[in-house]
């Protein structure tokens, strides 16, 4: 039985799950039996996919797992009539998402398209340029690097109230928080990356009588790219966190952080969850896009070899 192709189990499971969801809302039939069938068959499906190799199976297992969690959430919340102000079911969140699409887009534009992108660009750019600027001074490097590492470990989002005082309630103050949050990881990683080129590779450039600039351009920057991408990816997440949390400290009447904090206080949890969904999508899609770019640009790095 366990050798049956897992997608058959998945199909049966999904049908049973849909049935159970339908019944639990109407109260027109037994809920327990289809639910148990759904759980069992979906479990078997996941087990089957987990044994298989290939990208489809590798995608199917977590996808099914996510679906099961969402479905369980939905069933439990509806089945046990959990109050809406505690936990809305996923279907309600989806509905809120669609109903408030325009509002969600405005929040997204305010927080992501303005604060995050401006702050991320400035912070990463400045970190990179400063790393290049201090590259020729070992003294400055030894002074600034431990500093950067220390500051990276500090709760930088705390500067949000200060930035609000300096730059006002609008998005520039959030961008400023993002700049500070993204600057140091980029500085530290770029510096580490510029030290990455090996002694032999440097000697080779020296044997060509290549100057500082040529060595930087042809050897050290390409060798630094994996580190730079590490910072770019880390900063993508940090930037979003920085902008959202900075809005908790005060903002005009727009923005994802503003929406989450005010609607949570008003118990409109479906809209809060919808905004969280937007934030999650924005975060993972930015990260995914950067990871893809990294793969294209640093295809030669050992961690990607063999897949190109």
């Amino acid at each position: 039985m366990r050798n049956a192709p897992p997608f058959i189990w998945a199909a049966i499971g999904l049908i049973a799950a849909g049935l159970a969801r339908h019944v639990v809302a109407d109260g027109t039939g037994p809920v327990l039996a289809p639910s148990l069938i759904a759980l069992l068959t979906l479990f078997l499906a996941m087990l089957g996919f987990a044994r298989r190799e290939g990208w489809a199976a590798r995608l199917a297992t977590p996808a099914l797992f996510g679906l099961v969690l969402l479905w369980l959430w939905e069933m439990l919340v509806i089945g046990f009539a959990v109050p809406f102000v505690l936990l809305p079911p996923p279907s309600a969140i989806a509905l809120a998402f669609i109903r408030h699409l325009a509002l969600l887009w405005q929040d997204f534009a305010q927080t992501y398209l303005h604060a995050v992108i401006a702050g991320y660009g400035l912070g990463c750019g400045a970190g990179f340029l400063v790393a290049l600027a201090i590259d020729r001074s070992p003294f400055l490097k030894r002074g600034l690097l431990p500093m950067g590492n220390m500051i990276s470990a500090m709760p930088i989002v705390g500067i949000a109230p200060i930035m609000v005082m300096w730059f006002g309630f609008e998005w520039p103050s959030k961008a400023a928080v993002v700049v500070v949050m993204t600057f140091f990881p980029m500085l530290v990683n770029t510096t580490a990356g510029l030290a990455e080129a090996g002694a032999i590779e440097r000697d080779l450039m020296r044997s060509y009588a290549a100057g500082y600039g040529v060595t930087l351009l042809k050897l050290r920057l390409p060798a630094a790219l994996p580190h730079i991408f590490t910072a770019l990816k880390l900063n993508a997440t940090l930037a979003l966190i920085g902008a959202v949390v900075a809005e908790f400290f005060g903002t005009p009447i727009l923005g994802m952080g503003f929406r989450i904090s005010t609607e949570a206080a008003k118990m409109n949890l479906d809209l809060v969850w919808a905004t969280i969904t937007v934030a999650a999508l924005a975060g993972s899609l930015s990260f995914g896009a950067l990871a893809l770019l990294e793969r294209l640009v640093t295809f030669w790095h050992p961690s990607f070899r063999g897949s190109s």
């Binding site: 032999i200 590779e201 000697d203 080779l204 020296r206 044997s207 009588a209 390409p222 030669w300 790095h301």
Partner: peptide
């Protein structure tokens, strides 16, 4: 001599740039 690019140097390792 180095600045006139007088010699080619082969290292212990190939030192090829992976990119």
């Amino acid at each position: 001599a180095r600045k006139r690019r007088s010699y080619g140097y082969v290292f212990q390792a190939p030192a090829l740039y992976p990119w």
